[in-house]
Design a protein around this nucleic acid. Sequence first.
DNA 1: CGGAATCTTGATTACCTTCAAACAGGGTGG
DNA 2: CCACCCTGTTTGAAGGTAATCAAGATTCCG
Lengths: 229, 229
Amino acid sequence: MLTQAKTQSRHPAHPAAHLATKASPLSGQMLFGAVSLVGAQMSYSKGSEIHGEDEPAEYVYKIISGVARSYRIMSDGRRQIERFYFPGDIVGLEAGAAYTTSVDAVADTVVLLVRKSAVMAAASSDIQVARQLLQYTANELSHARTHATLLVRSAPERVACFLLELEQHLSASDIELPMTRQDIADYLGLTIETVSRIFTQFRDTAAIELPTSRRVVLRNRKALASLNS
Amino acid sequence: MLTQAKTQSRHPAHPAAHLATKASPLSGQMLFGAVSLVGAQMSYSKGSEIHGEDEPAEYVYKIISGVARSYRIMSDGRRQIERFYFPGDIVGLEAGAAYTTSVDAVADTVVLLVRKSAVMAAASSDIQVARQLLQYTANELSHARTHATLLVRSAPERVACFLLELEQHLSASDIELPMTRQDIADYLGLTIETVSRIFTQFRDTAAIELPTSRRVVLRNRKALASLNS
DNA sequence: CGGAATCTTGATTACCTTCAAACAGGGTGG
DNA sequence: CCACCCTGTTTGAAGGTAATCAAGATTCCG
């Protein structure tokens, strides 16, 4: 039942997500470990939905491998991506009764999941867990505000910020992009064409290399950073 | 010393902020009341700074009357207003060691202030306070995300959202604007001219009335809302 | 009344979007 | 192996929206 609910998506032909109920292999760090909860591991194939907007917020997820995106569909049909989740990131913890965004897998993704109620119960009795929960939410807030400052800037500035953010997160200047141009555009509030044009513009000014369309090597970090605050 | 530090601003001629150390007249609700802390009351005249960006986050403030704005100055000199604070709102609680924005008074404003360390200490011993703290941070996160979705929309949509948000907050369709057009522009990521043009455009289409430049009466809520998601 | 700040309006420009089409890569089936 | 298709990316041309530049109108206050 859980498996069904979680693995259906607009990619009907993908293999069923694999549910393996077992003790978390990654205990001892952050919330998942701290509360000594047993997490179920689950796989989502590229494009499948992890949770939908307005669904009851039943689970909290931790990305083990792969990448996910959190987004909202606006009334005009455009998709606004709020953030990308990478391995180690936790998804859905800030939700109230219901999730406020949809989250799906950008690439094949494995997550650990625990019931949100269990986390909340742990936070009620353990002040240390409560503190981590607050820290997590504060980090999300910080990211959301940074993102908002991004969206009022020029297109080249937005793309430069995005690349530097990614470099920071992956701690590598040789970046294998897991997301499409459309994902980047939706994250930055631009169109796919504009993103593409700015990539080639950065390549032409030797700020980056583009060995393939999905691989970016930062060459002139200073030129990119000069576009930032 | 506190009075000096808190009342200097780029409006050198304003009257000194008035510090009256006394028990909070508004106890019993939210964090300030819950932890039974004695708050100092303090007044800021229009334009004076409540706290600066990167300053150590020493105090938490609760707006008693007036309006404040939280903002960042970007490298190109533009000012990005993150949010406005109205009576009842709490300021600075989500900060880590240092504030991440500047906050100053849009109009003459009275706040209650308590040491952040006192609030954090209370949260460590009282799970109820910790929960309120988390709730507060989650609300700020929700607002930040809503704001981010605002910033990717068209100018008329942004202004309409702003007016409806204000109406919601003040629960009155007859809105006395405490902030300038420049404030609105900086909040919406637009220019003052664009904001002005859209106000008159809304007036010309009978969506709003503009008895004075600082007073807005919502007339056709549907027309405004149709611009939203 | 005079001066400063704020707001409005107009003309022009720049940036990004839209529309359109071609190109590239990757997998499948013949 | 190659033709084909599907998805994703790039590039070009034209158009629209909001910024910029500029000037005038209004409000507020001493």
